[in-house]
Design a binder for these strands. Sequence first.
DNA 1: GTCTATATTGTGATAGAC
DNA 2: GTCTATCACAATATAGAC
Lengths: 203, 203
Amino acid sequence: MVNKKPDNNTEQRILEAAKTILFKDGIQGARMQDIADLAKINRAMLHYYYRDKESLSEYVMKTVVSKFVETFKENLNSDVSIEEKIDLYISQEIDLVYNNSELTIFALHESIRDIDFFKKIIPEHKKSTLFATQLSKAIEDGLIKPFTLEEFIVFVSSLCMFPFLAGPLYKAILHWDEKRWQIYRRYLRRKLPELIKRAIYNK
Amino acid sequence: MVNKKPDNNTEQRILEAAKTILFKDGIQGARMQDIADLAKINRAMLHYYYRDKESLSEYVMKTVVSKFVETFKENLNSDVSIEEKIDLYISQEIDLVYNNSELTIFALHESIRDIDFFKKIIPEHKKSTLFATQLSKAIEDGLIKPFTLEEFIVFVSSLCMFPFLAGPLYKAILHWDEKRWQIYRRYLRRKLPELIKRAIYNK
DNA sequence: GTCTATATTGTGATAGAC
DNA sequence: GTCTATCACAATATAGAC
């Protein structure tokens, strides 16, 4: 669950329920009835608060996507060394997907299903020129292997995310139980940053 | 598309259409009408050949999952050195997802949506004891960093897959066009094995 | 095997009482 | 704001003609 604060009012309860159902089933697959059930209201209330399914989905999507974009951009323009910045970036990405793997799969699913809707949701943002400068310098100095800014972001984010997405897949294929997977999840979370850094830094 | 051979008969055409639609929309989201349209037949024919949506989905899912499992297991028991085996394993995983990223997202999506259905599909398979032995020895010899067999498989597979799954996501967030993404895809495919190996081998 | 017509149920959305 | 009743239509599935 993304938003964990206790939901006292109906509107908030609907939103939490919508996130859960939408992330699991996707927009097309989600049923308004399921969202209503989980929020312990009837279908009519959904429409009262969020007009229709599209509005509700768009609202939830915007929350989701801005979370991603924030994480992509956050701290990239702060005034710290590139090593610190990379450490923070990696740990933020891992935390995002560690706590919200269903959200990430939802985003992947929707991005191939309806790319125009998806594009509509992406907020405007400027390139992070400070980090780009730092990265160029670090590469010039031989600290970091050669990447463009975009390549670097895609590469690092990828390495942070996937191991946590594929849980149910691996559990099924390798016949792991939930406990085995949870142990491995925690192990990965601890080990991954070191392994990622080994892949981007020159020794 | 997974199966590329030309489809001369109706049954095959339906199957190809079903894969395309199911991979894009998921089982719940897919419409029988869309599958029928793509296969250039009417809905009744779908039911004639594959009874109902569940049967059709199960049939497609079995194809998908066995593809995964084969790739996971293939060559792990062949009689070659562990270095060769790892090279082959990495290139096979990358090829699988490079050519079938929608399939992979479909599998991820369905694995969180209905894990019981998913489990029903997983074929029985034995553990790969030969590779396990080779891996233990390579770790003992200091060639490879310490992993259990399962950890190794999950880790390497993860690194192979995600970069190719997130294309539409990155395209949207980074405002890349299709051409930019295609160039990066090919770059990744070439570079990834080296980066993965750097992460698993001791120097 | 293929098609049209139709039965049946599911689903999103609204109207209107309270 | 909340609920019940209901409408309109979408979607699965089947029956039966050819």
